[in-house]
């Protein structure tokens, strides 16, 4: 079972796999008044590809930031390979980060470097590999995302989708054990979207990685992931494997999968009723 209180049936073999990531009753807020996450529990077994889905601003990216130690949970524990992130020293945290890769929502490529230098950056920072080996590795990573020909370009010369693929190549530069993807499909054309989706799955399986995918793209996710968590208003509202999600009658899951405007998820941010708003403005 992936989650500690999973309502859906999950095969016994999955429950026997050691969890790579375990969030237990985690709460977090950027300010005291506004909580982003409240009591989130989820587990990600080693070697699995898990999606975290939900509307904008529901706290998906915050979960990734907690896992890589950029933020500290205000309550609960975040464990990676059994070790609590909160109790790590700075050196331990940096050692943990060397084992993970994170694809940022907008790529976060270094704009003063070329594509080649961007991908070589983690290799040059963390290894003593000779330049000839680094060159070969960088070109192999770029080839994997179909952009070997862009090695000498600057990030400003790439389209949004190409920049995302270069960022993906940089994320996997050191073959990390754990990869966190923040909206990897946003802004991609249908071909790139499908290729990147398949690439994420293949990388996960071929390199024995564990991956967490934060995305809105339900259709692409259902094709590639092992398990899905749905987050709404800072809480896990549903979770299950692909077959369970597809056949689910849960109103939230149905609304999200079918993209329905009415349901448990509000489209409008809380505000005064329209009549009151406009009559007030007229007065």
């Amino acid at each position: 079972m992936f989650a500690s209180s999973a309502p859906h049936g999950v095969s016994a073999t999955q429950s026997e796999i050691a969890p790579m990531i375990a969030l237990d009753e985690v709460s977090f807020g950027y300010t005291k008044d506004r909580k982003i996450l409240s009591g989130v529990s989820l587990t990600v077994p080693k070697g699995k590809l898990v999606a975290v889905m939900g509307g904008s601003g529901c706290g998906k990216t915050t979960i990734l930031r907690l896992i890589c130690g950029q933020h500290t949970a205000s309550a609960g524990t975040v464990k990676v390979s059994g070790q609590s992130i909160d109790s790590m020293s700075r050196d331990q945290l940096y050692a943990h980060r060397r084992r993970l890769g994170m694809l940022f929502q907008f790529g976060a490529l270094f704009t003063d470097m070329t594509v080649f230098e961007n991908i070589a950056f983690p290799m040059r920072e963390h290894t003593d590999l000779p330049e000839s080996i680094i060159r070969d590795l960088v070109l192999m990573k770029l080839n994997a995302v179909g952009l070997r020909g862009t090695a000498e370009l600057k990030p400003s010369e790439l389209s949004g989708g190409m920049a995302r693929r270069v960022a993906l190549a940089r994320t996997i530069a050191l073959d990390p054990e754990l990869v966190l993807y923040d909206e990897p499909f946003a802004g991609l054309d249908p071909i790139s979207l499908s290729v990147v989706g398949q690439l994420i799955r293949k990388l996960n399986d071929a390199l024995g990685m564990t991956s967490i995918l934060v995305t809105h793209d339900i259709m692409e996710s259902l094709k590639i992931v092992d398990y899905i968590y749905f987050i709404s208003e800072g809480k896990v509202v549903a979770h299950g494997d692909v077959a369970t999600i597809k056949s689910s009658n849960d109103p939230f899951v149905k609304q999200f999968v079918n993209g329905e405007p009415d349901g448990p998820v509000r489209f409008h941010y809380p505000a005064k009723p329209l009549v009151e708003e406009f009559s007030g403005a007229a007065a």
Binding site: C68, Q70, Y94, A95, R97, R98, L100, M102, F104, Q105, F106, A108, L109, F110, T111, F121, P122, E125, H126
Partner: peptide, 22 residues
Amino acid sequence: GLMKTTEQLAAMEVMAVDPVAR
């Protein structure tokens, strides 16, 4: 400031590279 806005500093931190040093 722009490196911070475009998450380049955050990317460095996640890559275990200290942005203050680099």
